[in-house]
């Protein structure tokens, strides 16, 4: 099954809408609640990142019996130093992001903690692609 969600950069009121819709899908598919939580927490963190940092983005999700594969591709400023961005506490978030309860430099490491696989590719001035994989079978 394939799902796609369009994300607007800067639209904080709508941030999390895609994660919410996909959570409903996973519930309908009777996925183990612990896996649902890991998936939607990782997805939500990544969705908030697009809203916080990019101009716009697309989330593409493929789910089969083996795994959930999430690809978040945005057009935005990109990440100059991914290793630095992965460090807990490192943040480039605006005051607006912090007012929403985020921007403490914990998002990427929390995505990593919840995902079975995480891959980040970025080009400065163009955008970022984040790939998250959650395995459905132990």
């Amino acid at each position: 099954m394939h799902f796609e969600y369009i994300i607007d950069g800067g639209n904080f009121a709508k941030a999390g809408t895609a994660s919410s819709l996909f959570k409903k899908v996973l519930k309908q598919l009777n996925v183990d609640p612990k896996l649902i939580k890991r998936t939607v927490v990782a997805l939500y963190e990544a969705e908030v990142n697009i809203v916080a940092h990019a101009y716009n983005g697309v989330i593409r999700i493929d789910i089969d019996t083996e795994r959930i594969y999430i690809n978040l591709t945005d057009k935005g400023p990109g990440i100059p130093d991914i290793e630095l961005a992965m460090q807990k506490g490192y943040s480039t978030a605006t005051p607006e992001v912090r007012e929403m309860g985020f921007g403490a430099g914990m998002g990427l490491s929390n995505i990593k903690a919840n995902a079975d696989k995480l891959k980040i590719q970025s080009e400065v001035g163009k955008g970022t692609t984040v790939e998250i994989e959650i395995l459905l079978k132990g």
Binding site: S19, V40, M100, G101, F102, G103, A104, M106
Partner: peptide
Amino acid sequence: MSDVLTLKSEDLLLMTGLGNVQTIRTAEM
């Protein structure tokens, strides 16, 4: 909310002074 999102437990109540829609979203996730 970033700290809330790192919790593994489910049997909990959230106490917060952050009143915006992302508080509800975080709880939902």
